[in-house]
C-alpha cells in the first residue's frame, strides 16, 4: 500500500473535468484507489465519489493505492495534480 499527501494547486479546484481525468486514469489500473479529505474517504475510481469531495484550491488530499500496480497508479495521479490538470 502506498500513501501520498498532495495539495490542490489548480485555481478552479477539483471540478468536473479534473474529476473525470482522475477516474479515467485510475480505472486503467488493477489496484484499489481511495482519496481521503479530512474526515471523508471515497473510492477514487468513482466519478460520483471524486466529485462529491468538492475539493477546492489549496485543500489537502491523501491518496491511497493498494494492489499490484499501486506505484504506477499513484505516480500517474500525482503527475496530473502537479500539472494542474492542464489548467492554471
Amino acid at each position: 500500500m502506498v500513501r501520498k499527501t498532495i495539495r490542490i494547486v489548480n485555481k478552479l479546484g477539483m471540478h468536473a473535468r479534473p474529476a473525470t481525468m482522475i477516474v479515467k486514469a485510475a480505472t486503467k489500473y488493477r489496484s484499489e484507489f481511495r482519496i481521503i479529505k479530512s474526515d471523508m474517504e471515497i473510492n477514487g475510481k468513482s466519478i460520483m465519489g471524486v466529485m462529491t469531495l468538492a475539493a477546492e484550491f489549496g485543500s489537502e488530499l491523501e491518496l491511497v493505492a493498494d494492489g499490484v500496480d499501486e506505484n504506477f497508479l499513484i505516480q500517474e495521479i500525482i503527475e496530473m495534480f502537479l500539472n494542474k490538470f492542464g489548467e492554471e
Partner: peptide
C-alpha cells in the same frame, strides 16, 4: 462523463 456515471463502481 455521462458514460463514467454509468460505469461508476459505486453505482
Amino acid at each position: 462523463s455521462h458514460k463514467l456515471i454509468l460505469q461508476d463502481p459505486e453505482f
